[in-house]
Nucleic acid binder design. Structure first.
Lengths: 266, 266
DNA sequence: AAATGCTGTCTGAAATATCAGACAATAACG
DNA sequence: CGTTATTGTCTGATATTTCAGACAGCATTT
């Protein structure tokens, strides 16, 4: 059973309407929701149709069904739709049904309150990194990388930890080649990344300075599941000029809390 | 096992669809998710099939699609499924896309931190009351009425406010007759409820003592939308023996904050 | 051992949901 | 002004999906 994560959305560029494909309603719904998540803003039905490669008439039909179920809702003056209330309820049910996740959220809250810094819970989604939850810094320094947005793994401190169960060969096969290229054009040498991963595994934490953007210092610590594997990470996103003393203090706190959240293996 | 007093299983109109009705996949998905939300715990595929009145083979098909999309996920060792990670991401996107909602959540956090009491954001879903979000008391007094669970409107303080735009006649038509019956068997006289609604409208807040259960004192204040209508409410859920002085202090805070969150209407 | 109840997977067949496209309204644009 | 995009709604046809039911496997009960 290969768990091909999220492969349903077609690339919108290039290949013209290679039509004739008739798709199931359910699959359309899934594509639609993922498209909305990536777009991160209300969309018009016509644009949704283009983005998921579905006929307009079908898209209207589906959108109306989802509107009625409150899984989507109308937003703004006309024609825009975005996620609806029902999604909030479903998501809340997800994140509170399991005691471990609740403990993690509590810790997130506490750390944000204690330090005033931006704290995130991170994980993988397919071969990308995503923020699963976050508490933004109360200060003016507000990065707020959005929850659920897929980011190339090599751009992140957490990513180095989340791959630490893999061999170098496995990492090489796992990361799409284009993902080594940073937003500013620089390219991370794969060999360097592999040694970063090894270092993270050895140290039990990972830090990056001014990587994905020039202004942030990121530090991540592993939360281990019942088998000792690194499932999620806890991390701080700091201004890059945070003094060393403060940084090491925060790093110690981060590691301690992450360890406390790890499930004691058998 | 038997969950709550929701006797009506098949929603929609009274005439239950006769056996042999063929339904759309999308509708099955919607029914499935709502069934999971009501049940509030992982379910087996067979039970889901029974609960939504779908053939087993169809249900397997749908569940597998949703599992692959991470809208559901396997939980526990055997056959149980519940909401998946994708739902969390969709829900997060919903609750953060709009600035007003974010302000409300911030206020919720702040009030919980300041008072240590249980704070809730409430609203209507169809002709039922639901909790939209909450912060549980840090103390041992933890009620934690679940987010998203539908509750008869007359059982709640918020409900009295949320109906205050309706005439007595409209309220009468809106509330299902069975909803006046409290969990302990007592019945609220409709006339009394109507005058409660009127009182709430006049006072600009609403309180109930030991109504839905014997141990809680609830107080609610309205959050008004751009048109001045009461869209949501903010409320405290207190131990019923909270001293009067403390209660009036909290009530003042509640009303002030709710007013601050209301959108300046015309 | 037989009987019962489950789960998860397949099948073929029939009912229908998806699709392409037409349509009227509205807006944007030169 | 005509021309070119929209949006939202309908239509009928057919390719597909839903459905009933059979099946093997596993467990528990009689």
């Amino acid at each position: 059973m290969s768990d091909g994560a999220t492969g349903l959305i077609e690339t919108e560029a290039g290949a013209g309407p290679r039509n004739g494909e008739r798709r199931r309603g359910i699959d359309r719904v899934i594509m639609l929701l993922e498209a909305l998540l990536r777009h991160r803003a209300p969309m018009r039905v016509g644009d949704i149709a283009k983005m998921i490669g579905a006929p307009r008439s079908t898209t209207y039909e589906i959108v109306n069904s989802l509107l009625e179920a409150e899984m989507l809702e109308n937003v703004g003056t006309e024609g825009y739709v975005y996620f609806g209330r029902a999604m909030h309820l479903f998501g809340w049910a997800y994140s509170h049904h399991n005691a471990h996740y609740r403990r993690i959220i509590e810790t997130l809250d506490k750390m944000a309150a204690e330090t005033g810094e931006t704290v995130q819970l991170c994980g993988l989604r397919g071969n990308k990194y995503i923020v699963l939850d976050c508490r933004d810094s109360s200060g003016p320094f507000r990065i707020s990388s959005d929850v659920g947005v897929e980011v190339p793994i090599p751009w992140t401190a957490s990513g180095r930890l989340l791959l630490s169960h893999m061999s170098e060969e496995e990492v090489k096969d796992f990361i799409p080649p284009g993902d080594y290229k940073l937003p500013d054009g620089r390219v991370i040498a794969p060999a360097e990344f592999f040694s970063d991963v090894a270092l993270a595994r050895q140290q039990g934490f990972s830090e990056t300075a001014a990587l994905a953007d020039r202004f942030t210092w990121c530090m991540a610590a592993p939360i281990r599941d019942g088998h000792g594997a690194i499932d999620k990470t806890l991390c701080f996103v700091l201004p890059v000029d945070t003094p060393e003393a403060r940084r090491s203090e925060l790093l110690a706190l981060l590691c301690e809390r992450a360890r406390g959240l790890s499930l004691a293996g058998s």
